[in-house]
Design a protein around this nucleic acid. Sequence first.
DNA 1: AGCGATTCGTGCAAATATGTACAAAACAAT
DNA 2: ATTGTTTTGTACATATTTGCACGAATCGCT
Lengths: 271, 271
Amino acid sequence: MLAEERRFRIREMLSSQRTLAASDLCAVLGVTAATIRRDLAALEHDGVLVRSHGGAVSRMSSTNFQPSYQTLSHVHSTEKHAIAREAEHLVLDGETVFLEGSTTVYELACCLNQRKRLTVVTNSPTIVCQLQRSTGVTVLCTGGDLQKDTFYFSGEWAQRALSEIRLDKAILGVSAIDIPYGVSTANHAEAQIKKMIMKAAKTRIALADHSKFGTQSFAYVGPVTDIDVLVTDSGTEAKYVKVLREMGIDVLIAGATGTKRKEQNTTYSNK
Amino acid sequence: MLAEERRFRIREMLSSQRTLAASDLCAVLGVTAATIRRDLAALEHDGVLVRSHGGAVSRMSSTNFQPSYQTLSHVHSTEKHAIAREAEHLVLDGETVFLEGSTTVYELACCLNQRKRLTVVTNSPTIVCQLQRSTGVTVLCTGGDLQKDTFYFSGEWAQRALSEIRLDKAILGVSAIDIPYGVSTANHAEAQIKKMIMKAAKTRIALADHSKFGTQSFAYVGPVTDIDVLVTDSGTEAKYVKVLREMGIDVLIAGATGTKRKEQNTTYSNK
DNA sequence: AGCGATTCGTGCAAATATGTACAAAACAAT
DNA sequence: ATTGTTTTGTACATATTTGCACGAATCGCT
């Protein structure tokens, strides 16, 4: 087998598997570990992957693209992950959904790679990159100005794109939710986009970990009753859950107990 | 057996096999390794294949399993890199430029991270992700439908965004350039986008390595005179350069020693 | 914190591939 | 037939790849 062929197959595997174990590669490709190591070194040099002890992690369509995302997602990452896993069941095959950029929604996007017949609209370049290899998912992007603080698109192009579509479901992260005040966010442009997403979707699903409750932020998005389904973690105080449910909102609590989650980047050997 | 027939059979084999081993070709065609090497060298120059240690890899998109970013990014990467470095000087601080998704243009985007006061518009999510951390660069994205084969945005949203802007410079990769026929590309949607980019820009800069010359592809983009500046590598035949210059096109040759054509993906240890 | 098991980096040697000079062979045209 | 051109085979020096080996670094587990 040609060296090129071998490396091509490694690339190929990386498009379906985010992580590869060096030992597995030795067995599958029939070469020694030294050769695999050299292959991985070469592919790392080409920017295809990032090596890690025992194997490698894909660099395309992964969180390695933006460190800001990584640093952010470390915060409450266990809860975010549980929330994403819970929200995944709300997305059905054949639907058209909006995924609004936010770290929690990004986690959700990672779960959707294997879906068939799903249309995703998003204002996040990171989510686009995450989903670009999944053949079963049609991806549309609003485009617009890239906000340097949040890494989402906003602005005129994004707004007009949103004004022209109707969605089965919109999934968005919220940065602040308060019962009397409503939902708010730090960025005015982001608030504008969130309002339009709300308007375009039949079902509005919000993801918020427990730290977001009872807080207010600069730019007002809308009342909490704009939300149809709210997914949060078990750390949220019961009083919030109770009041929201009384207001007719479907509150889902993601079970985050005991699931000791390790950092995504270092678990390369899992199948 | 005629040399022409031998090379035809190699082409034929490449349409069913992505890679060919030189040793296999010797056996099948009944000639020595030296002859096969000369054949492969000739076919490489014609842009049919890319040589690699021990054989060759098909370059024709129809046979490539995924003629995507990753597959092609290592092909002619030395030339692409040199071209990108050369084109970098054409982008000036303070300008508004369009970067059209293509592997060579992506290389260029990587060089622009440190710029101050630069506005970049692009239809490539990969380029957005590449530039999103650079504080000095304002990034806009056309949005649109994500093409699963090329990973660029196209479609209505992309077209309308392009119809509303005027650019100092547009930088695009070309997949096929032929003197009488003009510029063409494999994808119809991509050709549409390219046309609009051409229209929106005051100065149109095309990047093309030597293998693109003298080739035609499915979808017509426009005559070669649409191009103001063409950046290529030193492997391009002099006749093309001469004719294009006579037509008033500013042809820049990226400095690379013509004889030494090492494959980047096989040299991982240097530097 | 310590320890055994893996894994990593790398020098070395064998095998293989590459580029090229040169001669032989095939071909084309008078 | 002969002459000039192109192509192919041979030979050989150089370059690359790969497996093996061994010390160093890292990981997982107690």
